[in-house]
Computed example of a mutant assay.
Amino acid sequence: MSTRSALIEASGLRVSLGGRPVLQGVDFSVGPEEIVTIVGPNGSGKSTLLRTMIGAVRPEAGHVRRQAGLRLGYVPQKLALDPTLPLDVMRFLSLPRRISAAERRRALEDAGAGQLGDRPLAGLSGGQLQRVVLARALLERPQVLLLDEPTQGLDQPGSAAFYRQIEHIRSRLGCAVVMVSHELHVVMSASDRVVCLNGHVCCEGRPEAVAQAAEYRALFGTGTNGALALYRHEHSHVHDPGCSHDHHPHSHARTEPATAAEGR
């Protein structure tokens, strides 16, 4: 993707947390209306990359460039809420700034949570709360929506339903989507591009190409490969075919492949 067309772009990122290197030489970008999924084992820097992209983490080297005035929506991996807070969903969406009831209802509908407006936050299931947090992010009318493992804890049908909702959001709002996930069998098939991360970019490209890449198989094995056709995302975008590999000298020989359960 050319620098000119990217909504947000990172170049040469190096990030350490607590003195431990997390990201090294990472280049990453997302273009208009693209769905990009970031996959990788635990500790590979996926969440750190997202937090660096939104400006919550400062890199030691490299930089992040955003288009002027770019609106971002961020859904964190987990939102810590005090269960004793006497808040219903509609009021929660109006904090810390007042937002019209119509806008809040529209955001809930887009997030697939239109029936939850009057429910107390403390009474929501994990999946319901995640959709409400998604609605909150949509109130920013984001041009790039970033989601950090948004279906963590959901079963496979729930995960598939959530990502179909994300495609609806992309279609209706015309926003790009960047999401971190372990759920390769659902997410990869719904993505325009997949980035495999393990401290650096191991491999990236179309889902089918990444699933065949040696770097990807070294990390995850081959158990999820056959399921890519379960949920096919149709789109009219044009992308560069194939999978591009970097030439970082890091070896994956010591990385334990994910089990089938971990891959899901």
Rank of each mutant, 00 (worst) to 15 (best):
residue 42 N to Q: 12
residue 42 N to D: 12
residue 46 K to C: 03
residue 46 K to I: 00
residue 48 T to G: 06
residue 49 L to D: 02
residue 54 I to S: 05
residue 57 V to Y: 06
residue 57 V to L: 15
residue 58 R to L: 05
residue 58 R to P: 00
residue 59 P to G: 05
residue 60 E to S: 13
residue 60 E to Q: 14
residue 66 R to M: 06
residue 67 Q to F: 04
residue 68 A to W: 09
residue 69 G to C: 10
residue 70 L to H: 07
residue 71 R to I: 01
residue 72 L to A: 10
residue 74 Y to I: 02
residue 77 Q to R: 11
residue 77 Q to W: 06
residue 79 L to G: 05
residue 80 A to M: 11
residue 81 L to P: 06
residue 82 D to W: 06
residue 88 D to T: 02
residue 88 D to P: 02
residue 91 R to M: 08
residue 92 F to W: 13
residue 95 L to V: 13
residue 96 P to G: 08
residue 97 R to Y: 14
residue 99 I to Q: 12
residue 101 A to H: 13
residue 107 A to K: 01
residue 108 L to V: 05
residue 109 E to S: 13
residue 113 A to F: 01
residue 113 A to D: 01
residue 114 G to I: 07
residue 114 G to S: 10
residue 115 Q to E: 15
residue 117 G to M: 06
residue 118 D to R: 12
residue 119 R to W: 03
residue 120 P to L: 11
residue 123 G to E: 15
residue 123 G to A: 15
residue 124 L to A: 10
residue 124 L to R: 07
residue 124 L to W: 05
residue 129 L to E: 04
residue 129 L to G: 01
residue 130 Q to Y: 06
residue 131 R to Q: 04
residue 131 R to V: 06
residue 132 V to F: 09
residue 132 V to H: 02
residue 137 A to T: 06
residue 138 L to E: 03
residue 138 L to F: 12
residue 140 E to M: 14
residue 140 E to W: 11
residue 143 Q to W: 08
residue 145 L to H: 06
residue 146 L to A: 05
residue 147 L to H: 02
residue 148 D to Q: 08
residue 154 L to K: 01
residue 158 G to A: 12
residue 158 G to L: 11
residue 158 G to C: 12
residue 159 S to T: 15
residue 161 A to K: 12
residue 161 A to D: 09
residue 163 Y to G: 01
residue 164 R to Y: 02
residue 164 R to C: 07
residue 164 R to F: 02
residue 167 E to G: 15
residue 168 H to A: 15
residue 174 G to M: 07
residue 174 G to P: 05
residue 177 V to H: 01
residue 178 V to T: 05
residue 178 V to Q: 00
residue 179 M to G: 02
residue 180 V to M: 04
residue 180 V to C: 08
